[in-house]
Design a protein around this nucleic acid. Structure first.
Length: 587
DNA sequence: TAGAATCGCCAC
DNA sequence: AAACGTGGCGATTCTA
């Protein structure tokens, strides 16, 4: 493909570029940077393309780009939502442009996110620009310059490569959008595109972690770990000590194999796996098993939540800038890595290390029972909906309805059964699993579940209908119409039932993700002009950091934004958000 | 021996 | 495949 491009190095060039682009609605957009992390390197090139003409702006030619007025028109162009910037993984470019040019990126069409939506959970499909271009337009892309040095003198081939990447976005968008329309995915796509900037901002903001608090916590766990390891070592080697005649035989406590052997030597009837849930029942009878579980817990804390996380603190900001994948799961949920801020242990001693720096505070908001409310909405079950409308404790209300007693007379056990069923039903729990986790016999478990579904007849029929629907159509969709294609062999009963549970769960989990994503966009717009900064999200929880003096108004903004998003998707059930202000990340 | 696969466990 | 869904991650174990 021959393309026309020019290198822009002065104010005149920027003006000319913006004038040329003024009449266009869709513009291919890409950046080249010297590093992958915007805090580590420089933004070198900004490429904009009509498809026919491509403008390669050499940012290095503009001293102090953030403050350089020669780039004002470029900033205006980038933040203009009516000019659609087509980019592949726009979050990346948005971060660089935000940090190095001071421009918000609005009006995004992201071929990376679109490709994932269209793939609908097909894990075989890849989503690099080269793969996506190949898949949708059949063009081969040479990405060999991608990793070249963008810091020094640029070669003609580098500039041409940069131009090409922006130019191909224009025809690519046409193909991708056609597929989005065919699959009825435009609403989901818009939802995703609108969420890119909030997430880019969040990653730039980072989450403050108090290093000394974390180290103190670490030291405490280290001592516990050593003690537990020592005691466990003693107990395990008791069975083999006489055989070796050399006191204690050292066992690798982290090796399932060695631990299993040692347990067998001690006469412990080891189950098929040594996972906690299997070992738990044995803990009471065998102290060594209890000790093993204790050791595992602290060892896990030390390895997963130890020193390593401190290495993620960016020296320039003193904060953790994790990577959020917007479509981390095929359901639409986010995933997070480097580090995963969505799996920090719930215990106070860990959470309290994530706090607001001096003068700032955290506003923490989470949707109350959002997945169950979605299920209530989908099922249209009047009794289930009524349980929410009452405004009382949901599990207690459920228990009172299922067991036919007054809410005040609900026993602890009854509430616990109701709670576990409420959660389990979202995942498609069966009687055997329910019995296992409640300690109920198979028979009692079945009876309790019968009672539950007898009370919520609408819920029962929705789940059955939804299940047979996904098996028949092999497709599941969320409220935004996000799509998942189910792949299973219909002659394999286990595959079918697995696909059924997956397909029934996906619209619930995925609609929850839809609502969160919508909330993030509304929040992003509502927080403009305030000191509020998004710092973390955990599926149904949103954490904003703001000036302490502004906490009250920011908490109201957060509440309003999240409720508004919920109401866009749920009409029969009230949406409730719990908001609180705290200096630390605590419940 | 490096990378893949597996186990086990943290979050929602 | 714990007959309960989604992820990431660390340590061990397997494999080319």
């Amino acid at each position: 493909m021959e393309i026309y491009f020019q290198l822009i190095t002065d104010a005149d060039g920027v003006r000319k570029t913006c004038r040329e682009l003024a009449g266009e609605r869709y513009i291919g957009f890409d950046t080249e940077t010297t590093e992958l992390d915007p805090y580590r390197g420089d933004l070198r090139l900004v490429q904009l393309s009509t498809g026919k003409s491509t403008y390669v702006i050499d940012v290095k030619a503009f001293p102090e780009p953030r403050a350089n007025s020669d780039l004002d028109q470029l900033r205006d162009f980038l933040s203009d939502p009516s000019k659609i910037k087509i980019a592949h993984n726009a979050k990346f470019d948005a971060k660089w442009v935000r940090h190095h040019l001071g421009a918000e990126l609005n009006g995004i069409f992201d071929t990376f996110l679109a490709s994932q939506l269209i793939a609908a959970g097909d894990s075989e499909r890849r989503h690099s620009l080269a793969d996506v271009a190949q898949f949708f337009t059949g063009t081969e892309l040479d990405k060999s310059e991608q990793v070249s040095d963008w810091g020094g003198e640029l070669s003609q081939s580098q500039i041409e490569y940069a131009a090409k990447d922006a130019a191909i976005m224009v025809p690519l968008r046409e193909q991708v959008e056609e597929r989005l329309r065919n699959d009825d995915l435009m609403r989901a796509a818009q939802l995703e595109f609108d969420c890119v900037m909030p997430i880019a901002e969040m990653e730039l903001n980072g989450f403050y972690l108090d290093e000394s608090r974390w180290r103190e916590q670490l030291d405490r766990v280290k001592i516990e770990q050593e003690r537990a390891a020592d005691e466990l070592q003693d107990m395990l080697s008791a069975g083999v000590a006489q055989a070796t005649l050399f006191g204690r035989a050292e066992i690798n406590l982290d090796s399932q194999q060695q631990v299993t052997d040692a347990l067998l030597n001690l006469g412990v009837p080891v189950p098929e796996t040594t996972r906690a849930w299997q070992l738990q029942p044995l803990a009471e009878k065998y102290p060594v098993v209890a000790k093993l579980l204790e050791y595992r817990a602290v060892a896990k804390s030390l390895s997963s939540f130890g020193e390593n996380i401190l290495e993620f603190i960016e020296p320039k900001t003193g904060r953790i800038h994790a990577d959020f994948r917007q479509i981390g799961a095929p359901t639409g949920r986010f995933s997070c890595s480097n580090p995963n801020l969505q799996q920090i242990p719930h215990e106070q001693q860990y959470r309290r290390c994530f706090r607001a720096p001096e003068g700032r505070t955290l506003v923490i908001a989470d949707y109350s029972q959002i997945e169950l409310r979605i299920l209530a909405e989908f099922s249209d079950d009047t009794t289930f909906i009524k349980a929410f409308a009452s405004g009382q404790d949901f599990h207690t209300t459920t228990a009172s309805q299922v067991f036919g007693v007054q809410p005040a007379d609900v026993t602890t056990d009854q509430r616990s059964f109701a709670k576990r069923l409420n959660f389990g039903v979202v995942y498609g729990i069966g009687a055997s699993r329910f019995g296992l986790m409640t300690g109920l016999s198979q028979n009692d478990a079945e009876n309790t579940m019968r009672k539950y579904f007898g009370t919520y007849r609408g819920l029962d029929s929705y789940l059955r209908r939804s299940g047979s629907d996904v098996i028949m159509k092999r497709i599941a969709r969320t409220a935004s119409n996000r799509m998942l294609r189910l792949r299973f062999d219909e002659t394999d009963r286990q595959q079918v039932s697995s696909a059924r549970r997956y397909g029934v769960n996906m619209p619930i989990q995925g609609t929850s993700a839809d609502i969160l994503k919508r909330a993030l966009r509304i929040l992003h717009d509502s927080l403009r002009g305030t000191s509020g900064r998004l710092v973390n999200i955990v599926h149904d929880e949103v954490i904003v950091e703001c000036d302490a003096a502004e906490a009250q108004s920011v908490s109201e903004i957060l509440d309003r934004s999240m409720c508004a998003a919920g109401k866009e998707y749920l009409s029969k059930v009230p949406v409730n958000v719990d908001v609180h202000i705290a200096d630390e990340w605590t419940k």
